[in-house]
Amino acid sequence: MLHFELVTPEKLVRSESVYMVTVPGTEGDFGVLEGHAPFMSTIRDGDVLVQRTEKGEAERIAIRGGFAEVTAKGLTILAEQAG
């Protein structure tokens, strides 16, 4: 499972284990699964798609401004606004 964190300046919005997250990067959307290579990208305004299970429905979270960071520990999205 992928550890996913969504943080805004006001609070920690999400911190959970999920199957896959699709992030709206500045240069295109990218999906992050467990074991993704270290990666950092700025994001454009749009929706993050969070898939809890492989077959499950994706949840949409609108975000604005910020960047996403993939490390060995998981994916962290630092957004200026979320939800």
């Binding site: 990666f39 950092m40 990208s41 700025t42 960047f67 490390t71």
Partner: peptide
């Protein structure tokens, strides 16, 4: 700690400028 090569998109400088 991590010496792993991190990919940047767009570039390192562009991310820094926006950050």
């Amino acid at each position: 700690a991590a010496d792993a090569v991190v990919e940047y998109e767009p570039s390192e400088e562009a991310i820094l400028d926006s950050l």
